[in-house]
Design a binder for these strands. Structure first.
Lengths: 141, 141
DNA sequence: ATTTCTGCAAATGCTTTGCATTGCA
DNA sequence: TGCAATGCAAAGCATTTGCAGAAAT
């Protein structure tokens, strides 16, 4: 796997401590944080970092393909450094977002379903997102 | 099928012209409009209707189960009066949202997948959303 | 007659923007 | 050194809220 620095340099995007820090956080967690959560986690080690920079950074990393945006839950987009397509579950009570690992969305991303949908709709498809909604174990009483 | 009036009355929610109008628009279209689009479509016949009322109305109708919210695209949530679970395609260029009718998300909503995910994650699941992203026929050149 | 809803305007809150300064390359 | 990125504060917008008047039950 290619190092993040190389990927950025290839695209003529500067490697900064802030960008590395945001990416590092997303690599370490499975919590799918939103911008605010990333910002809070960054604060202790980067007291000067601004929220605007986090917004700009996730945007850059997303466009470069180093992470994916999840349109799930309240409180803005959630971010995931695992870019391989996979389903997510959202807890409607506590707001937690978890991965669904067992069955891969590759089952959709593959020929059968994608081509099927592509043929039906006429769309040139590029990606899929599968979201499950419910209550997590802690919130189900 | 139960009339919308009955459903609202059952829940002690008042039947108003505004609510009927918003619901009627969503029944007539397959465009999955957002609040602003609904508002614009309503304006000619209801010049006094306020945007805030549209926001409140879709919220009520959604909670009562008369429509579903789609978290797709820019420009806020999109609304669909067809509440049977089915996948959607989003055009990343023009913002259009279409239904995917051929294969039903029922394929997921059914025992096999839902129970599978439920067992894996421990979540008590209530719904699913499947979104495809790409370019619509008009935007694919 | 009550109670809820509507419409307006103000308030909120998330996200973006502009720009001077800083810091990669 | 030159160009891009950061940080701050201000601006922008979509959404929500509060409340007086209107409408539904």
């Amino acid at each position: 796997m290619q190092a993040i620095e190389e990927i950025l340099r290839e695209k003529r995007i500067k490697v900064t401590p802030q960008r590395m820090a945001v990416y590092a956080i997303l690599r370490e967690t499975r919590k799918h944080p939103n911008v605010e959560m990333i910002y809070q986690k960054l604060k202790p080690s980067y007291p000067a970092m601004s929220l605007a920079t986090v917004y700009k950074t996730v945007d850059v990393l997303n466009k470069v393909g180093l992470l994916q945006e999840l349109k799930v839950g309240e409180g803005g987009l959630r971010y995931d450094a695992i870019i391989k397509p996979h389903p997510h579950v959202y807890c409607e009570k506590c707001g937690k977002v978890d991965d669904v690992e067992q069955f891969s969305i590759e089952d959709f991303h593959n020929d059968s379903v994608m081509q099927h949908v592509q043929k039906e709709t006429g769309y040139a498809l590029s990606s899929v997102q599968l979201y499950f909604y419910g209550k997590c174990p802690n919130c189900s009483d």
